[in-house]
């Protein structure tokens, strides 16, 4: 490495076998501060498994994760919980806490994990919900919100913890087409604000304009990586390009 800057996150040789099948096969990559890496690949490639191995929601069979140069010892509960606080995660199906309104969804971890008092947690939650454009929906419960609003609450919930990086697992895949834009625009603002992110998505247009690097994954292996212009340009002749043009066709047929 010629670069003197150390990556904020380094993931090395992650392996995972589930149900006798190799789901992740020695996956490695690193993230620079402020970078947006996009993970693409067909369904079943192992994108979700990889993202969940990074914060040990799924314990990897092998491999290491470093945050700012420190290896995470995931067996130590304290270290694990402290690490997870610094890694925001966004799920495809939101996973909001159904019994809490938008405000409480964001505030609960501030109170229970960060030990903030009720008022401070509330103020912070209001600020984060404002930031994702939901300042007027504080009292609504998940069942009263649209998919796009739910995903924005979940982004606010993650941001309130002041994460150093964010893992986003197909944040728009469960949304009706007309709601995708509002969520992508929040993610775009985050990227422009310098948030370090790794995003699994099928949104190729978004990837082309915003990704710093694209990782193309298939059968648990990152088979191609590079700048979006290199991998996704019409004549690139890459697997990634092939995959994306098929996605484009799919969307064209949709319309």
């Amino acid at each position: 490495m010629t670069e003197s800057k150390e990556p904020i996150l380094r993931v090395e040789n992650i392996c995972k076998i589930l149900g006798g099948k190799k789901i992740l096969d020695s996956v490695s990559f690193s993230l620079q501060r402020g970078e947006l890496k996009v993970l693409i690949g067909p369904s079943g490639a192992g994108k979700s498994t990889l993202l969940q191995c990074i914060n040990f929601l799924i314990p990897p069979d092998k491999g290491q994760v470093w945050l700012e140069g420190t290896e995470i010892r995931s067996r130590r509960k304290r270290d694990l919980y402290a690490f997870r606080q610094q890694v925001g995660m966004i799920f495809q199906d939101f996973n909001l806490f159904d019994h809490l309104n938008a405000l409480e969804n964001v505030a609960i971890a501030l109170r229970k994990v960060k030990k903030m008092n009720r008022q401070a947690a509330r103020d912070r939650a209001v600020a984060e919900l404002d930031r994702v454009g939901l300042g007027d929906k504080l009292g609504l419960f998940p069942a009263e919100l649209s998919g796009g609003q739910k995903q924005r609450v979940s982004i606010a919930r993650a941001l309130a913890m002041d994460p150093k990086i964010m893992l986003l697992d197909e944040p728009t895949s469960a949304l009706d087409p007309e709601l995708i834009g509002e969520v992508l625009s929040v993610i775009r603002d985050l990227a422009r604000g310098g948030m370090t992110m790794i995003l699994a998505t099928h949104q190729i247009g978004f990837t082309r304009t915003l990704a710093d690097e694209v990782l193309f994954m298939e059968n648990g292996i990152i088979i191609e990586r590079g700048l979006p212009a290199e991998l996704l340009s019409p004549n690139a002749g890459t697997r990634s390009r092939d995959f994306c043009s098929r996605l484009d066709e799919l969307y064209a047929e949709d319309e």
């Binding site: 929601l57 919980y81 996973n95 806490f97 919930r157």
Partner: peptide, 13 residues
């Protein structure tokens, strides 16, 4: 839904 426990864990709980 199983995801809520995952979300709570991801927040450091």
């Amino acid at each position: 839904p199983r995801g809520q426990l995952q979300a709570a864990r991801a927040l450091g709980m």
